[in-house]
Amino acid sequence: MTSALEVRGLVVHAGGHEILSGVDLAVAAGEVVAVLGPSGSGKTTLLSAVAGFIPLSAGEIRIGGEVVGSGVPPEQRSIGFVFQSYALWPHLDARDTVAFPLRAAGHGVDAARRRADELLTAMGIAELAGRRPAEMSGGQQQRVGVARALARDATLYLLDEPTAHLDAATRGAAESEIAAQRAARGAAALYATHDPAEALGAANRVALMRSGRIVQVGSPIEVYERPIDEWAARMTGPVSVVADWPGMGRVAIRPEWVRLGGSRSATVSAVRFRGSFTDLTLTTGLGEIEVRVSGATRHRPGESVTWEANRVWALPG
């Protein structure tokens, strides 16, 4: 089966800086790959290069097996793009926005609008059909942006931090909706985000991006449990790094890998109740250790406790 996307040795320069320095990445048909990295790491540039918005300095991009060089404009690539800023056209209402790709594909005005209405209905936002962006909330604009991308029958969907501007409640709903819509089409997606929970939850595989390079690729569980270095460990979720674990040297410990009770002693230095779980910080002979216990806890700062790590992960250096 051909890959939905293959990127090899991708280099992109902008304003005299190297933004991408040799990126290799593949997305299989029907697969969702999340690109996880801090802002400024080159995620948006990678997506823009795949879409054909910006020229490449070096490297090769294949979409659905076809090589798309700098000469192939976005409209001739089999892609749909969801913008971080939504990029809705201020002069068009939601119906005409979603009908736009259909008309570009050669459908007549009426057929395109009918199909757009169906899509808006399927996404549960039929009531937005007649509204322009200025009359929509951020969450509504985001959904119309997703509907517009889906209206294009694409091999690959590119989602650039699609939920970055949404509040926590809307974000969860938007994430599951995007996942459901994409899965219904069986299309592949490349999903840029700086939020580890979103990346781990939404993707089949996660690619960690740092300063224009992919530093690790793996399943969500792999990148979470077996980070290649301290940076990767911190990027993928809460972690304590112990410089000198007896017999192992430098290790990473996820908070849920630690249990209270055991042979090691510590003092509780902070307690943060989060609802369904509680985070505690322990001051130990090995340094500060984060612990996550489910539900509430009776422990208070200053108390002496014992603890043990169920597992630790060795880091280089």
């Binding site: 404009p73 976005p74 749909g80 809705l88 594909a105 517009r148």
Partner: peptide, 14 residues
């Protein structure tokens, strides 16, 4: 903004 034109290109418009 340029990205509005890009959105059009990504939607299949030349």
């Amino acid at each position: 903004r340029p990205e509005l034109e890009w959105a059009a290109r990504a939607s299949g418009a030349d």
